[in-house]
């Protein structure tokens, strides 16, 4: 069972890298939002590869989760900032970044634990942006709606999983692994939706593009 999920995790990473490459293919021709999302996919691929590298080396890799949180917050805020076109998005994201900076400055050891509050707050903020974008898209055909569905579902589910991250010291190894494996399943679903978005809207660049 563990082996199956390990392979699933590699599979999710491979799809993530493929998605990053697919989006990179039309990087130059597309909108700013598209560029930020491509950067997000590339950054996620790098963190995922770093995670795997540290596992292979046998070093503790928990500090990557902090990098993951910060990078995700910055790039997805830029992405939603472009889609929603409201400066408040940057203000909130900047505020949260400052908060996390203070958190790490006051307690540097947090870097080697799960920063449950930071992760939860940043994901909650991104979920809020995603909801606003849903609202904006009700009356018009807007780009990246499939990606938005993926971000929304994955962030909601993974927030709970990450927030319970520090329970790994309390829980049995098996119990915690179950949660992490569920996270992999949700991540795979997210990446499949990203591929689906690319397939439906960006596979070929037509003069009249039909958005789904």
């Amino acid at each position: 069972m563990t082996r199956f999920f390990k392979n699933l995790s590699y599979f999710a990473t491979i799809i993530l890298i493929i998605n990053a490459l697919l989006f990179l293919k039309s990087f130059a021709k597309e909108s700013k939002a598209f560029k930020f999302f491509t950067l997000y996919l590339i950054a996620m691929s790098l963190t995922q590869l770093g995670m795997i590298l540290f596992v292979i080396l046998g070093e503790p890799n928990i500090f990557i989760s902090s990098i993951y949180t910060v990078v995700q917050l910055i790039l997805l805020s830029l992405f939603y900032g472009e889609l929603i076109k409201n400066r408040l998005i940057y203000v909130f994201a900047g505020g949260l970044l400052c908060f996390m900076l203070v958190q790490y400055a006051m307690d540097p050891s947090l870097f080697f634990r799960y920063n449950s509050i930071g992760i939860s707050l940043s994901q909650a903020l991104l979920i809020g942006y995603s909801l606003i974008y849903f609202y904006r898209s009700i009356s018009a055909k807007t780009p990246f709606i499939i990606v938005n569905v993926g971000v929304f579902i994955y962030l909601i589910c993974s927030t709970l999983i990450f927030a319970s991250g520090n329970l790994q010291y309390e829980l049995s190894q098996q119990g915690y692994l179950l949660l992490l494996n569920l996270n992999i399943v949700f991540y795979l679903l997210f990446q499949c939706l990203v591929t689906f978005e690319w397939y439906t809207n960006y596979r070929t660049r037509k003069a009249t593009k039909k958005l789904v």
């Binding site: 579902i153 909601i156 589910c157 709970l160 999983i161 319970s164 329970l167 829980l171 179950l178 569920l182």
Partner: peptide, 14 residues
């Protein structure tokens, strides 16, 4: 108990 609580919350969120 904790695991099942988290799982229930997770299914609910989903």
């Amino acid at each position: 108990d904790i695991i099942s609580l988290i799982l229930i919350a997770l299914s609910f969120l989903l």
